[in-house]
Computed example of a mutant assay.
Amino acid sequence: MAPCSFLYSVDFCKAAWGFPIFLTVGSVLYHTYNQTSYQALAELSPLSHSIANTVKRVVIIVASVVVLKNTITMQGWIAALVAVGGVFLYSLAQMAEKKAAK
Rank of each mutant, 00 (worst) to 15 (best):
L81N: 09
S91F: 06
V67Y: 15
K69L: 03
I60G: 08
K99E: 11
L89N: 10
I60N: 11
I78P: 00
S64G: 03
V87R: 04
A101W: 01
V82P: 01
V62A: 07
G76S: 05
A80Q: 08
N70P: 00
E97P: 00
G85Y: 03
L89G: 02
G85D: 02
I60L: 14
E97D: 12
L92H: 08
I61Y: 06
G85I: 00
S91L: 06
G86R: 02
L89M: 07
V67R: 08
G86V: 04
T73P: 00
S91Q: 05
L89Q: 08
G86A: 03
G76T: 09
S91H: 04
N70E: 13
A100G: 00
T71N: 15
A93C: 10
K102R: 11
K102D: 15
A100L: 10
K102G: 15
L92V: 13
K102A: 11
I78G: 03
I78Y: 13
V62K: 01
K98H: 13
V58M: 06
K69W: 08
V84M: 14
E97G: 08
W77L: 08
A101V: 01
N70H: 09
L68A: 12
L68Q: 09
K102P: 02
A80S: 11
L68W: 13
L89T: 07
K102H: 13
I60F: 15
T71S: 15
V59W: 08
A63H: 09
K99P: 03
V62Q: 04
I78T: 11
A101C: 01
T71D: 15
K56C: 06
G76D: 10
Q75V: 06
A63V: 09
V67T: 08
K102Y: 13
Q75R: 12
S64C: 10
V58G: 02
K69D: 14
V62C: 05
V84H: 05
K99C: 03
A96R: 09
I60W: 13
A63N: 11
I72L: 12
F88D: 04
G76Y: 01
L68H: 09
L92I: 13
K56Q: 12
L81K: 07
A80N: 10
A80V: 01
K98F: 08
V87K: 05
A101D: 09
T71K: 13
K99H: 10
M74T: 11
V65H: 12
N70Y: 11
R57M: 04
L81V: 04
A79E: 10
L92M: 10
A80Y: 01
M95K: 14
K56V: 03
